Amino acid sequence: MTPWQQRLSTGTEDIQDEVIGWYRQTRHGKAFVPTVILRQVVEFLGVPDDVPAGVAKRMERQQVLYDGEHRYDVVIGEQGLYTNIGGPSVMRGQMERLLQDFDLPSLNLGILSRTAAMTMIPKPAFSIFETGEGRRVDYELVSRGVDITDPSEVALHDKAFDAISSAASYGDAAEELISKALDHWSR
């Protein structure tokens, strides 16, 4: 568990390369993003500003959504649609991108409504990946990333994701929640 400031001491591009590798190896990934969609880490952590390279890498990692070989189940907390990171124009762009990718066959996008009845208390954002060494759960905390590889703990995260995703809205209901957020950011 190396602190972010140390891992990002040369910028964000190397970390993005690592994550791209996880995405490419993962045929069926899962992610729970409860509060924010986009993060601004460069200024906050005081690491080298290579934002254009980092953005290019993030776009590269999204290409797995279009190759027909991968599938991702993603649940975003409704609050994440309204947490103002970057201002209204950035948030509008985020909502437009979600709506643009909403019908991709490789993406099963759910929105966890702020009033959804839960069988568990949602924890911080996490992603479940496959790697050459097996499945892993990735948490991005404020100060460092945490990787969980113990099979019993990964299985517990699968169970948690199932509970969260069963409470989420999908299809027209999820699209309506995103459209409401887009309307909010367009005012």
Score class of each variant (00 low, 15 high):
2 T>D: 08
4 W>F: 11
6 Q>T: 15
6 Q>G: 05
6 Q>I: 14
8 L>R: 01
13 E>F: 03
15 I>W: 13
15 I>H: 13
15 I>T: 12
21 G>A: 04
24 R>W: 05
25 Q>S: 13
25 Q>P: 00
25 Q>F: 08
25 Q>G: 15
28 H>L: 10
29 G>C: 06
31 A>C: 07
32 F>S: 03
40 Q>T: 11
45 L>S: 04
46 G>V: 06
48 P>F: 02
56 A>P: 08
57 K>C: 04
58 R>W: 01
59 M>S: 06
60 E>R: 08
62 Q>H: 11
63 Q>W: 00
64 V>F: 11
64 V>D: 01
66 Y>R: 07
67 D>E: 08
73 D>K: 09
74 V>L: 10
76 I>D: 08
77 G>V: 07
80 G>L: 03
81 L>P: 12
83 T>C: 01
86 G>F: 05
88 P>A: 15
90 V>A: 12
90 V>E: 14
92 R>T: 10
94 Q>E: 09
95 M>S: 05
96 E>C: 00
105 P>W: 02
105 P>L: 04
109 L>P: 10
115 T>N: 11
116 A>Y: 00
117 A>V: 14
124 P>L: 07
127 S>I: 08
130 E>R: 10
136 R>D: 02
138 D>V: 14
141 L>I: 06
142 V>L: 15
144 R>T: 12
152 S>T: 13
156 L>H: 05
159 K>P: 00
159 K>T: 15
160 A>R: 14
162 D>R: 11
164 I>C: 01
166 S>V: 08
167 A>K: 01
171 G>W: 07
175 E>Y: 02
177 L>N: 03
178 I>K: 01
179 S>I: 01
180 K>G: 04
180 K>V: 03
181 A>R: 02
184 H>E: 08
184 H>W: 09
184 H>I: 04
187 R>V: 01
